[in-house]
């Protein structure tokens, strides 16, 4: 990859940080967000999505026992290859962390995620929903929202918050 750029130079940084030595000018962002793309501490690409059982962050649907029965806990889908590398078994509790934060999730080891071959190196991707978190279930057994991991940057073209592609690490909890 291009070593000069640690992040996509065309993304929108909402809090006005231009260069690596700038401090955030307005509130609402973390300087870490600027530097994480090329950080060896967070080597895996992550994406987030919903599940059909919960609406948005699940604040409405996590109150419904029938919905909770179907989709009770935060999970992360990872490839068989990455799971083998990390010694993770299907159903293990693992930690997913980014420069911003950390959540635990139940590993779903699956064929639906496959390592990419990009410029002769292997790039792993993981995916997790953001339908869990605040308030319900009251015992905290559902886990936290993967929005704790996502950066406050805007997509280069649309300026929509770019929460669908970011860098993380995964470790056994």
């Amino acid at each position: 990859m291009n070593k000069k750029h640690r992040i996509n130079p065309t993304i929108k940084l909402f809090y006005g940080v231009e260069g690596p030595n700038d401090k955030p000018k307005k509130g609402g962002g973390l300087p870490e967000d600027v530097f994480v793309s090329g950080d060896a501490k967070f080597p895996y690409v992550a994406t987030t999505y919903r599940v059909s059982e919960h609406w948005q962050t699940g604040v409405l649907t996590r109150h419904l026992p029938w919905m909770q029965e179907l989709m009770p806990q935060q999970f992360v889908e990872i490839s068989k290859e990455l799971a083998a590398e990390k010694g993770v078994k299907n159903g293990d509790k693992i930690n997913v962390s980014s420069a911003r934060g950390k959540v635990w999730a139940i590993a779903m080891v699956t064929d639906r995620f496959k390592p990419f071959k990009i410029m002769n190196s292997t790039v792993h991707q993981v995916g997790l929903p953001w339908c869990f978190g605040w308030q319900y279930p009251e015992d905290g057994s559902g886990g936290d929202s993967s929005n704790l991991l996502t950066p406050t940057i805007g997509d280069a073209n649309t300026m929509i918050p770019e929460t669908k592609a970011f860098m993380v690490n995964v470790e056994k909890a």
Partner: peptide, 12 residues
């Protein structure tokens, strides 16, 4: 409803 946990599958 039954109280369930995620066992590494969507099936529940």
């Amino acid at each position: 409803a039954t109280k369930t946990i995620n066992k590494g599958t969507v099936e529940n």
